[in-house]
């Protein structure tokens, strides 16, 4: 199998898309550093992919102070770095009439602040060496202000804008910044939510994401049909959108 990347860092690798990305990269011969909070999940990854191929660090992305030194340590231990994927993300179930500030801020800290903390040093590094690829896992939920989960949607919207700004900063230096917007992926995040459609497996999502990353596209919906759906949804006038239960 062709090795598209040599050294990758996946932040948020304990399950779902992140874990699938680590497995996919490792199977291609890429050395991967997997970061997550849950040590048992990380152990599963090294058991599956081999300790030579995957190194792990237990890390909570809200522990922002740890990031600069850990980032450098990981690059050293991998022997280089050409791909950084921010896949950490949480979605707290929120009732329609619920306003839970603590739960909302927790999502923002994980989905957005953690991304800034990790992707800033990645952007600095890749900008300095004039190469590399940054992938941020956003969401279709970030495209509109849906009533269902204001903080989750806005954290992904903020990530989307942040990634676009990074791209505008460092693409000219030869760095690819890829925004991924998955639809419904069969992960712990959506477990138990009724009425979902077009659900794809994390493995399929990982395959598509790595394909898009190696091509260096700016933005990709996963699967691609969501691009059309979201193009329509984005164009729905606000006075109509507010009446929709999405």
């Amino acid at each position: 199998m062709k090795k598209r990347f040599k050294h990758a860092l996946v932040i948020g690798a304990s399950s779902g898309i992140g874990a699938a990305l680590v497995r996919q990269l490792a199977s291609e011969g890429c050395r991967v550093a997997a970061l997550a909070r849950r040590e048992d999940k990380l152990r599963e990854l090294t058991r599956d992919a081999g300790e030579d191929q995957v190194i792990t660090r237990v890390h909570d992305v809200t522990a922002i102070d740890e990031v600069p030194a850990l980032f450098q340590e990981i690059a050293r231990d991998l022997g280089g770095l050409d791909l950084v994927i921010y896949a950490a993300g949480i979605m707290r179930p929120v009732a329609f009439d619920e306003f839970n500030t603590e739960a909302d801020l927790e999502m923002i800290r994980t989905n957005y602040e953690g991304a800034v903390a990790w992707l800033n040093p990645a952007a600095e590094r890749f900008g300095a060496v004039g190469r590399g690829c940054i992938v941020g896992i956003g969401s279709v939920a970030g495209d509109r202000g849906r009533s269902g989960n204001p903080a989750y949607g806005s954290s992904k919207a903020a990530l989307d804008t942040y990634l676009e700004a990074l791209r505008n900063r460092i693409a000219r230096k030869g760095v690819r910044v890829v925004t991924i917007k998955p639809g419904f992926v069969d992960t712990e995040m959506i477990a138990g939510i009724p009425g979902l459609f077009w659900v794809i497996s994390p493995e399929k999502a990982a395959r598509i994401i790595l394909k898009k990353a190696s091509r260096g596209v700016r933005e990709a919906y996963v699967p691609a049909r969501w691009r059309l759906v979201m193009a329509i949804i984005r164009r729905i006038p606000s006075f109509i959108f507010r009446h929709l239960k999405v």
Binding site: P68, A69, Q72, P121, E124, R125, A128, V129, G130, R131
Partner: peptide, 10 residues
């Protein structure tokens, strides 16, 4: 920390 400003592609 090693100074990030010294990192170069060689």
């Amino acid at each position: 920390m090693l100074p990030a400003s010294r990192l170069e592609w060689i």
